[in-house]
C-alpha cells in the first residue's frame, strides 16, 4: 500500500543549483542535442569525453549521484540483454573468437561492440534523467510550449499539449491517492487483490478500476468547470506570471554543449 504513496513520477529533485536555474528551453534543447551526439559518437574516446562532461553536469546539479544511477535500475535487464546479444552477434561475419557456447561464438569484436552500445544507452538515460531531475514538470511543460510555438502555423496545438501535460502530471498523485482509498474500501469488503493467478488478479482489479474511472471523469468535469469559471479559453492572448527569459548562463550552457559536441564528433581531432 505504502509503495503507491512513495511512487514518484517526474522525479524532480529540488535544488538551487546552476543547472536547475537554467531556462527549461535551454535544458530541453541541450538534452536533445546531447542525445543526438551520443548516437553519432563512433569511438570510446568520444564516449569517455562525453561521460566526463555528463558527470560534471551531474556534479554541478547537486543531484546525488546515487539518485541518478538508480534511474538505471528499471532498464538493467535491457542493458544486460544488449550486452549479451552484442557479444555473440555483434561482429557480423566473423571476428576473433573468444569462447563458445553451443552453436554461438563470442567474439572480441562483439564484446567491444557490446560494451560500446551499453555505455551509449547508459549515457542516454543519464542525460534524460538529468533533465527531469533538474526541471520541474511545470517548467518542462512551459518550455515545451514555447519551443513548439513556431509549429502552431502547421497546426501543432502547442498550448493545449502543454496544458494537457501539466494537468496529467498534476493529477498523478491525486489518482494514486484515490486508487489507494478505493483499494482499501474494496479490501474492507473482503476483496482479495494480491493473490491468485494473473487472470484472477486482473479480474480482481475491476472493482478498483471502475470507481477510479468514474472519479477521474468527475474530477475532469469539475476541473473544466473551474477553469471556465475563471475565464480560461486556451492559449490565445494568454499571459504568464513567470516569463521564460534566456540569460547569460543559458548562453554559457549552450556554448558548453556545442563545444563538447564538436570535441566528441570532430573526426581526427586532437
Amino acid at each position: 500500500m505504502e509503495l503507491l504513496r512513495s511512487l514518484t513520477l517526474g522525479q524532480y529533485v529540488p535544488r538551487a543549483s546552476p543547472v536547475h536555474r537554467l531556462d527549461p528551453r535551454t535544458k530541453i534543447l541541450a538534452a536533445t542535442a546531447l542525445m543526438v551526439v551520443v548516437f553519432l559518437v563512433r569511438d570510446f574516446r568520444g564516449l569517455g569525453v562525453f561521460a566526463a562532461f555528463l558527470a560534471a553536469a551531474v556534479a554541478l546539479s547537486q543531484v546525488p549521484a546515487g539518485f541518478v544511477l538508480r534511474g538505471l535500475r528499471p532498464i538493467w535487464i535491457l542493458l544486460l540483454l544488449t550486452l549479451v546479444l552484442q557479444i555473440f552477434f555483434g561482429a557480423s561475419g566473423g571476428g576473433t573468437p573468444l569462447w563458445r557456447l553451443g552453436p554461438f561464438v563470442a567474439t572480441r569484436e562483439g564484446l567491444v561492440q557490446g560494451l560500446f552500445v551499453t555505455a551509449r544507452l547508459v549515457l542516454l538515460v543519464v542525460c534524460t534523467s538529468l533533465l527531469t531531475f533538474t526541471t520541474s514538470p511545470v517548467e518542462l511543460a512551459d518550455g515545451m510550449e514555447r519551443l513548439l510555438r513556431p509549429f502552431r502555423r502547421v497546426g501543432v496545438p502547442a498550448h493545449e499539449l502543454a496544458m494537457m501535460m501539466t494537468i496529467a502530471l498534476r493529477f498523478i498523485p491525486t489518482l494514486v491517492e484515490e486508487t489507494e482509498k478505493i483499494m482499501k474500501a474494496q479490501m474492507a469488503r473482503g476483496a482479495d487483490l494480491d493473490t491468485g493467478g494473473l487472470l484472477r488478479r486482473a479480474r480482481a482489479l475491476v472493482p478498483v478500476l471502475v470507481p477510479l474511472f468514474v472519479s477521474a471523469f468527475r474530477r475532469a468535469e469539475e476541473l473544466a468547470v473551474a477553469m471556465e469559471a475563471r475565464g480560461y479559453r486556451g492559449g490565445e492572448g494568454r499571459t504568464r506570471m513567470k516569463q521564460l527569459r534566456y540569460r547569460a548562463q543559458d548562453l554559457w550552457a549552450a556554448l558548453a554543449v556545442a563545444g563538447i559536441s564538436v570535441l566528441v564528433l570532430w573526426p581526427g581531432r586532437w
Partner: peptide, 23 residues
Amino acid sequence: FQYPEHQLFEATVFDDVAFGPRN
C-alpha cells in the same frame, strides 16, 4: 470510508451489495 458511494462499481445495486458476501 468517507464518501463510500465512490466505491460503487457494479451494474446493479444488488450486485454491488453482493460483492462482499461473494468474496
